[in-house]
Design a protein around this nucleic acid. Structure first.
Lengths: 341, 341
DNA sequence: GAAATTCTGATTTACGTACCTCAAAAATTG
DNA sequence: CAATTTTTGAGGTACGTAAATCAGAATTTC
């Protein structure tokens, strides 16, 4: 039978109240007594029953998720996942509130963080923007003792407790390797379509991609990056234009959103041989393009996993518990049409 | 504030006892009264506090994991993950017992299942062997109302509640696609190294691999399958032999275990151009071969995820709760050296 | 050695649910 | 309408922990 506080009290020869004082770090216990209790805890292998403890505390964790109200499929999917978690939250002693902020707007994010600070939740998750103001706001949350997790986009060297997202440099390298292998040896020109080089994720993906191509695939020439602002219409025209001017393009790496435009441009283009296309994020459009043979590989981060992981980590931090590192590592998924979920 | 049973009793104008009878399906409630209580439950949005309920029931879930005492890295890793879960289990009101059985031995598995049946645990997870006796034993467990999850290897068309593992046909197809792409168009001979064609997983992987190669890569010829019994020593000699007899081999698909032998054979072989190698399961040896360039891609199933998923599903089934399907789907991970965890 | 201070014990209530008993009320049956 | 059965109410105890009060004991201080 699992030992309880009563067993510890008996074993240590003290009262329940003293055990409670030791367990919860309350004052009023002599060093020797505290040691005796701790000894009993260790020897009996006592572990606090968290469910009972939370029940007694009447505790409900209130978490805030700050999400950009972006209209690309990935962010919409992320919203969806958080809403799913909200729906389940009542069964899990958690209360999750979603705060929407305008995308790519550091000031708005800082304001949202300040608001959150005022309401003192048990934890905050947010899609970071890499700006000094945001870092400072994060520092203030940290000082207030509020656990913080960055979601999808990180805030490196900051006071966040955890990052629930992928390593974007590694993702870019993976794309580079796949592109190199798929083009195997032939002289080739490759185009890169990004959202904006101002966004850290996109910069990092390009960095990884370029590094691998430069180091291992000298047969490949990368054209200047196209910045499509994650906008399908703009992306379509830019890709169409590039394809008409470089009919020899053998590969396209789309490292941002707006893939609907990319797909349309390729389908409409008057080209002999389809280029190898590698894109990010598994959405309805990239999925059907993958199945239809327009896209060759999709790199993906599992938004559902990211959201659930963020909640698990925040809960653990709020309880001062350890996390299972392997469970919280967000994979860079590679999807071919054969291993689609 | 979250509504409790008391709120429901008040709202429905009945006593706590009646609410309890309705909630737990106990007899002695008139239809109209039952309806009134259910109405109150729905309108207040009551959800039973599972933590409190389990506390009151004094419930601890006891699960049994039946694992083959195989000595390949994957199975050792699986054992490890289950032991990790055992270590955490005291904090989660679960008690997990591991039962070891000889590998590839249907009779031993059946005996183990019978033993388990006798002790009536709250759930069972086992690495299935596709044999009629096993299916019948599973049926008896089902009739006893014991939730069942197959782990890593499935028992299709059986009475299991859930399969925590990958789709091996899809995995084979994925390997086939990668092989086809990596060899891009050239005439090529490819060898396949399996453990045993008697094992369902291996048959399915080969089936998927062959199908893709046959349908899309007519330039590739697949040599007769080498059955290395998942034994590094045997695998090494078989691969070495094949490499010396077919110096033109352009690719090797290793769909079973025993990759240490494969790697050694390739490293020692006197060949001009390294073949493209695709293997299964990320272990220490496949990982370093991937980094070292001996293996080009590793398909992996995350054993930790499988174990945690099995436990979540068993717990949910024991409570009669729904599972989050997306969370319990085991991915076919593709690892290149660039996206290694 | 008395007074003040610090520790410790005993006991109680609470959290939300499960499960039990016993009595009272209501409905059904003859 | 009486007897019987079914339904309902009231109340309690338990699960393991948190948190509080208050009295008594031990220790320290003067």
């Amino acid at each position: 039978m699992k030992p309880t506080v009563h067993d510890i009290a008996k074993s240590a020869g003290v009262s329940l109240a003293t055990v409670d004082r030791v367990l919860n770090g309350r004052p009023g216990v002599r060093g020797v007594t505290r040691a005796r209790v701790e000894e009993a805890i260790a020897s009996l292998g006592y572990v606090r029953d968290l469910a009972a403890a939370n029940l007694a505390k009447g505790r409900t964790y209130s978490f805030v998720f700050i999400l950009p109200e972006n209209d690309n499929s990935f962010m919409i999917g992320l919203h969806e996942e958080v809403r799913g978690a909200v729906a389940r939250s009542s069964a899990e002693r958690t209360r999750i509130r979603i705060v929407d902020v305008p995308p790519f707007d550091a000031k708005a994010l800082v304001a949202a963080l300040e608001n959150v600070l005022a309401e003192k939740p048990a934890g905050v998750a947010f899609v970071a923007i890499d700006a000094p103001g945001v870092r400072e706001a994060a520092m203030r949350l940290r000082e207030a003792g509020i656990p913080m997790v960055t979601l999808v986009s990180d805030l490196p060297d900051s006071s966040r407790d955890h990052y629930a997202g992928i390593d974007n440099i590694a993702a870019g390298r993976t794309a580079g390797s796949l592109m190199g292998r798929f083009l195997s040896g032939r002289e080739a020109t490759v185009a890169v379509l990004a959202g904006s080089m101002l966004v850290r994720d996109h910069r990092e993906r390009l960095e990884g991609f370029s590094a691998v191509i430069g180091d291992h695939y000298s047969n490949i020439v990368i054209l200047p990056v196209l910045e499509g602002r994650d906008d399908p219409v703009l992306a379509e025209s830019m890709v169409a234009d590039t394809l008409s001017r470089h009919p020899d393009i053998a590969g396209i790496y789309s490292l941002g959103a707006g893939n609907r435009g990319l797909i349309r441009a390729i389908q409409k283009a008057d080209i002999v041989k389809r280029p190898v296309v590698i894109a990010h994020e598994l959405t309805n459009s990239t999925r059907s393009a993958l199945v239809g043979g327009v896209i060759d590989a999709v790199l993906n981060q599992d938004a559902g996993h990211e959201v659930r992981s963020a909640i698990r980590v925040l809960t653990a931090k709020a309880d001062g518990l350890p996390v299972i590192a392997a469970q919280e590592r967000i994979r860079i998924d590679i999807f071919l049409k054969d291993n689609l979920p």
